[in-house]
Design a binder for these strands. Structure first.
Lengths: 303, 303
DNA sequence: CCACATCCATGCCGGCAGGTTATAGAAGCA
DNA sequence: TGCTTCTATAACCTGCCGGCATGGATGTGG
């Protein structure tokens, strides 16, 4: 008996939501389509999985059995998929490098160039990650190496080398009262609304809200964004302000936004990370070596 | 990324056969259909899985990765499917009973009737199994209890109670030289071609070929059959002869076939079996109790 | 008591995926 | 050269699947 994993995912969604309608919008399909999918699954298995009622969809006994095992099956499939794709990239001599925003700043291109020199025949595939995953795809196995900002959740399970540090500045809308000041004390910003990363990014989000430097006062969230472009728009539109690496002033300059130095918050560290499983991979090691040689102490614009 | 398990099964078949053409006939689809399936799988994953050549299909490196994990995934899915269906039957108060050929002979109907009396609301679903699975679906989890012939492969992993024993006779085509004899010594039959069960049935097949009673002389196989009907036809058509329980003379009487007592082979034992996992299941225990009370020492027609 | 909101189910239609047969193309082999 | 044995392609057809609009059941509030 065969099933599309899609049906299983739909089933899990309906089981979790307890409602076709809600599950349908979560899955971005119409409710009738989901109705059909679930009925088809039940038909294929020859088993009633839900009892329908005005209140929604409740799992039957066999439904619970399936709901218990399906998530593990799907996770196992996703894992297999990642490994297969990883094997394909390795076979094609492609090194997948995840990065966030400006990666290792000006050093990035030098690192990639040097790697290309040392490993002819290999190609670097740079993949920009959204802020909802501060490990830049490394935790999920989507990339082999990542250039990212420390600290980030899941860091302990990975190998990390620090490349350089840079001060954190504040990004303000041009019309902001403090936009003209040369240096701003962070405590003056405690009550400002901030543009934050999505909640999934956990510790990383907290770091960029500088929760530790607020002495317990909660941060106000004015907007949530997942990528630099939305972030810039949110700030320019006045939804909030945000801490940013000093280099953002170079990489993300934009009319309507000014960057100013801030006192009272620690610096941001940029690191290179990889999976312990790849400790023995000579290509990964080579890339890391390039990072350490060309990225260390060279985060600034001048060298 | 979603996939139909069907595609995975096709992939595994092609990987194992090393050829689209051969895999296609094994899967009972046309070769172009398989071609499309594999190409679709490759397209979906974005990964080349095979290298094509005149000699056939050879796995690529990522193909090997997938081929390594896919079988376990499919097995896990099949397992989930069985458990879900099992839960459905239990919820619907259906006891699934597997059996082979004549099950426990005349006792069968008494057992089922008594169980129905003791467990009103429950229904017994009798499932006849093919000889390729002498555990009658129990090993695969397709049934809750099984009435079968001992010994069978996988027996050690299950709970088994013996119900009764009966002599083994020989089934001969009516025109056979020995068809008129009252009693036949098994050694006279050593060189006859036998109608055997499929090879998958292992030890069970050997038992019905009476390998142990042949003193090392190999059995000649005249035909292989998977179910009583084919078996009867094969014997009637003269492809071979076969040992059978004495009760077959009652249950499988047919023009053109005669059953005769044989000396020099041990009897056949009929047993009831269930999974150790169901040791605590009161319904299964009840059914087994019915078997023991109504099946023991009552295999014959008169008692 | 009626109108409304909230679920899930159904009917209809359009698009496409997947199967079959027939055939082409490449490559070893006698 | 002709035959065999692979896989790929073409043409066709069926049936599934998704979306929209709507229906039916059921609880809720004015």
């Amino acid at each position: 008996m065969d099933v599309d994993t899609r049906l299983l995912r739909s089933f899990v969604a309906v089981a979790e939501e307890g409602s076709l309608t809600r599950a349908a919008e979560r899955l971005y399909v119409s409710q009738p389509a989901l109705t059909k999918q679930i009925r088809q699954l039940e038909g294929r298995l020859g088993v009633p999985l839900f009892t329908r009622s005005r209140a929604g969809m409740a799992l039957t006994e066999p439904g619970r059995t399936l709901a218990q095992r399906a998530p593990a099956l799907l996770a196992e499939w996703d894992r297999t998929l990642r490994e297969t794709r990883g094997a394909a990239d390795r076979a094609a001599r492609v090194l997948r490098v995840g990065f966030l925003a400006s990666a290792a700043n000006e050093a990035t291109s030098r690192i990639v160039a040097e790697f290309g020199r040392r490993r002819p025949g290999w190609r670097v595939e740079m993949r920009q990650a959204a802020w909802s995953d501060p490990s830049a795809g490394l935790a999920e196995g989507d990339v082999d190496v990542a250039l990212l900002r420390l600290p980030f959740p899941g860091q302990q399970a990975l190998r990390v080398e620090v490349l350089f540090s840079e001060d954190r500045w504040i990004a303000l809308p041009a019309g902001h009262p403090l936009a003209g000041r040369e240096l701003i004390a962070f405590r003056e910003l405690w009550d400002e609304p901030f543009v934050a990363a999505p909640a999934e990014s956990g510790r990383w989000r907290e770091y960029w809200l500088a929760t530790e430097e607020r002495q317990g006062r909660p941060a106000r969230i004015g907007a949530v964004t997942d990528q630099p472009d939305d972030w810039l728009s949110a700030i320019a539109n006045g939804y909030g302000i945000a801490l940013a690496p000093a280099s953002a002033a170079r990489f993300y300059a934009r009319p309507g936004i000014v960057y100013r130095p801030v006192s009272g918050v620690g610096p941001s560290r940029v690191g290179v990370a990889w999976s312990p499983a790849d400790d023995g991979d000579p290509v990964v090691r080579e890339f890391v070596r390039c990072c350490l040689e060309l990225g260390s102490a060279s985060g600034g614009p001048t060298a």
